[in-house]
């Protein structure tokens, strides 16, 4: 039977949207579209609508169309975040400390926790899909391990440890091929959290700006790469 889910479930999301940045981007998009789009004629724009009197329940829906709000037919314009987050407040404190070890603030952009990445990872591991539920176990186990290891080494939780102390722990688990046997499981955990942190961070406005992503805006024409790019690539 192929009616069972086969696809590995990926990744997650955060709830901390930068409302200012978004509204500005949208305003620019509207302007850009207005600049290139000729006025739409109204002729033939409306399809004739059918009589709805005397229909059986549910039949109006057939004529009206539109999303039905199920998991396989969600309203794309008004996304719903339907599941309950699973990580505890204490787990989130540890997670935030780890996320900021992976992506700290620097001169160009803020830290992971400053743009809501721990909340995104919480959302991700709380999703009702098999892959995400496996990740919940891995992330929870890894967070517990971080505190146990930190207490053994420094007598305090990972979040209370100094940056230098945290670095000692992270250095042992940051690259699976080089991790010692007793650190392999923790290294797998770290690897996954690093991926999720990067995904959460670089999909925010601050993250996209940090990378220099330019796009998602209406253009009247597509010009191809500018001269500086051609020069950089040896194509000038």
């Amino acid at each position: 039977m192929s009616d069972e889910p086969r696809t590995a479930d990926a990744t997650g999301s955060d709830d901390s949207l930068d409302a200012k940045g978004r509204s500005r981007r949208r305003a620019l998009q509207v302007l850009a579209v207005a600049a290139v789009a000729p006025a739409l004629p109204s002729a033939g724009a409306a399809e004739p609508s059918a009589p709805t009197a005397g229909l059986e329940p549910g039949e109006e829906q057939a004529i009206a169309g539109g999303p039905r709000g199920t998991a396989t037919d969600p309203d794309l314009l008004r996304p719903k975040f339907t599941w309950t987050n699973r990580l505890s407040a204490a787990e989130l404190v540890t997670l935030a400390a780890l996320c900021d070890m992976i992506i700290p603030a620097d001169g160009k952009s803020p830290s992971a926790s400053a743009v809501g990445v721990p909340a995104y990872i919480n959302h991700w591991v709380s999703a009702p899909y098999d892959g995400n539920q496996r990740e919940l176990i891995r992330v929870r186990g890894g967070l517990a391990w971080l505190n146990t290891e930190s207490r053994k080494r420094f007598g305090k939780t990972f979040a209370r440890a100094t940056t230098g102390e945290r670095t000692q722990v992270c250095d042992d688990i940051c690259f699976l091929p080089r991790a010692k046997e007793e650190h392999k499981a923790a290294a797998r955990f770290f690897d996954r959290v690093r991926d999720l942190t990067a995904e959460g961070f670089y999909t925010t406005d601050a993250g996209m700006k940090d990378l220099g992503y330019i796009g998602n805006m209406a253009l009247p024409k597509f010009d191809g790469p500018p001269p500086a790019v051609l020069k950089h690539l040896g194509l000038a």
Partner: peptide
């Protein structure tokens, strides 16, 4: 009427990633 053309991954559940419901 149904396509949010410029919406970003972060506005969607799971950053818009594929799931068994929306592969």
């Amino acid at each position: 009427t149904e396509t949010p053309m410029f919406n970003l991954p972060r506005q969607a559940p799971l950053r818009g990633a594929g799931t068994r419901d929306k592969p």
